[in-house]
Design a protein around this nucleic acid. Structure first.
Lengths: 183, 183
DNA sequence: CCATTAGGTTTCAGGTTGCAACTAAAAACT
DNA sequence: AGTTTTTAGTTGCAACCTGAAACCTAATGG
């Protein structure tokens, strides 16, 4: 009876719901993007994003509350308030760019301008990537879900069948899914 | 007068809004994650996610409509329907993982189990990363926004001031923002 | 035939979004 | 000083979206 919610917990105990609590709300990512682009003031966000005043107010407050933006009054003009990214906010950059690149890949074609570049060579950045332990770029084909206690154990030929694994919670994740995608 | 919406276009013409059209809706990412984990059937999603029936129905339809999932009737049991990830759906993996990792980094600590690993060495994957043209891992410190026609032009010492650039659309993005975060 | 399962749709209360109008405080102009 | 403008909000209200529960329909299974 205590473990009734085992499979549910598996899905809920992960960073996603926590991330979505803030960033799942409408406009949050657009505001973040605007922040990345250097916008700092209420009226700037308002006119650039085309968001409603009350919603913007609410979203900014939530982003501040979650430590993604910091809210500080301007010194030179005390009507103005600056909303600036925190380190926690900057850490959302990979997620935002991955989403952006995906949208760009499958959306109506558009030549983005300005372009996000590596400041060293001033050449466009590559796709946001999943890296292995050794730095190799991984595709979904290369991924596997393994029980924590089985980390590092290589497959010797005998692997539980994917359908069993799905319920046993052993080798679960992308096995069946990638076969399905291949077919 | 024709270019009145210049700065607005700059923010809107990017993959983000297109990505958010589907993935910005509540539950979309959670359903995607469940799909990655091998769930395929309506009632599976229903019980694992704790979502309402009507919403699930609506979300699945939207994900199918946008080509992220494909909906096909089961052959062996024609009541059942399989929802499986398309290639377009799999391409959301970096975005989902980046979000997940961010949530994990800043949320209440939790030891994820099972763990997502590189199937070769069965070791946990690294953080989702922004790569430069040369494969180097970039932080937000290393990024720059440049006009499309200035690609590859290295800075010789004379760079327009960031505040000017913000309005001119030249070197816009993270310059001021990263200075702000540093301070 | 009858019960059950799978995948929905309908209904309706309650919450969220968005537009427009209003406020309050700090500059800026006259 | 007095008026206007700018900045960052709040409030009120209609339209839309969400979620829980009940209902519907087709396919299995006994």
């Amino acid at each position: 009876m205590g473990d009734m919610r085992e499979p549910l917990r598996e899905l809920i105990e992960c960073g996603l719901p926590q991330a979505l609590e803030v960033m799942g709300e409408r406009w949050s990512f657009m505001i973040l993007r605007a922040s990345f682009n250097g916008l700092k003031h209420f009226e700037e966000f308002l006119s650039e994003l085309g968001i409603a005043r009350n919603i913007l107010s609410n979203r900014l407050a939530k982003l501040v509350e979650h430590g993604i933006l910091k809210r500080e009054p301007c010194e030179d003009d005390r009507r103005k308030i600056e909303y600036r990214l925190t380190e926690k906010g900057f850490d959302l950059l990979p997620a935002m760019l991955a989403l952006r690149q995906w949208g760009q890949k499958y959306g109506t074609e558009m030549t983005e301008n300005p372009v996000l570049v590596d400041e060293r060579d001033r050449l466009p950045i590559g796709p946001v990537s999943i890296l292995g332990h050794d730095g190799r770029i991984l595709s979904h084909q290369d991924l596997w879900l393994v029980k924590r206690e089985d980390l590092g154990k290589r497959a010797d030929g005998s692997i539980a069948s994917p359908s069993d694994a799905l319920h046993a919670g052993d080798v679960v994740d992308l096995d069946s899914a990638k076969k399905a995608a291949a077919g």
